[in-house]
């Protein structure tokens, strides 16, 4: 069952001679429960791809569908709600709300959606991620690795159709990175969570079930 599908996805910036083809016909699929990494150097188009997949920007042409929904069919308001319910984001700079404690940060997307967090599920997640002792702390009192674990918990708790992780270890040292990635991998196994991780780092990408390579806005076929 494919949860994410793109078809001939294109994003061009500018016109004429100045035109930049950030994405130039990207088609791929991600199955439910799969952990896929998208690797590319800077300027390869991988960040543009993530923005398209997450409905953060609209493509020039082509299609993105998540959980059976073609994103182009949605108006901005609906797209915003769609993102909140269906997509969990993990960013390089964690994006936690500094004035809320760890628990409040984790349940924020669920509460924003007017739902009640599934406390039993939440407990399993924070136990798995090793942050159950930190629920009352403020983000600024945590290390970078711990903050990113909170961000992963926040992405998991709403049981999104897919988690998009953009360079999740970009701000972490290599030792902490390994831990955070390990937890991401275990979470994907344990909760059958579909994850797409974008990175420039080959080493980090190896942890995924499958690697998609992108270069000059196109997917690289490997023999």
């Amino acid at each position: 069952m494919s949860i994410l599908k793109t078809d001939e996805l294109k994003k061009y910036y500018g016109t004429g001679e100045n035109q930049v083809r950030a994405l130039d016909g990207v088609s791929f699929q991600v199955e439910k429960g799969e952990f896929v990494s998208v690797v590319g150097t800077s300027g390869s188009g991988k960040s543009t791809l993530l923005h398209m997949l997450g409905g953060l920007d609209r493509p020039t042409s082509g299609m993105v569908s998540i959980d059976g929904q073609d994103l182009s069919e949605l108006k901005d308001d609906a797209l915003c709600i769609f993102r909140r319910r269906k997509i969990g984001f993990v960013f390089q700079n964690y994006n936690l709300v500094p004035s809320l404690n760890v628990y409040e940060n984790i349940v924020l997307p669920v509460q924003l959606d007017g739902r009640v967090p599934d406390e039993a599920f939440l407990k399993t997640i924070v136990d798995t991620l090793g942050i159950s002792e930190k629920l009352n702390s403020l983000p600024n009192n945590l290390s970078g690795g711990q903050q990113q674990r909170v961000a992963i918990a926040r992405a998991l708790v709403s049981k999104p159709a897919i988690i998009l992780a953009d360079e999740p270890t970009g701000n972490l040292d290599s030792r902490t990175s390994q831990d955070v990635l390990g937890l991401l991998k275990i979470s994907s196994n344990k909760f059958a969570q579909t994850i797409v991780m974008i990175t420039h780092d080959e080493e980090i990408a190896q942890l995924a079930d499958r690697i998609v390579r992108i270069e000059d806005g196109k997917i690289l076929a490997r023999e």
């Binding site: 069952m1 319910r85 007017g114 739902r115 159709a161």
Partner: peptide
């Protein structure tokens, strides 16, 4: 799902879809 808005029925639809998948 028919729509994505702040109504209860829209939330229910998302949950229903989640259950089905």
């Amino acid at each position: 799902e028919s729509s994505y808005d702040e109504s209860k029925i829209s939330r229910l639809e998302t949950k229903w879809k989640q259950y089905l998948s």
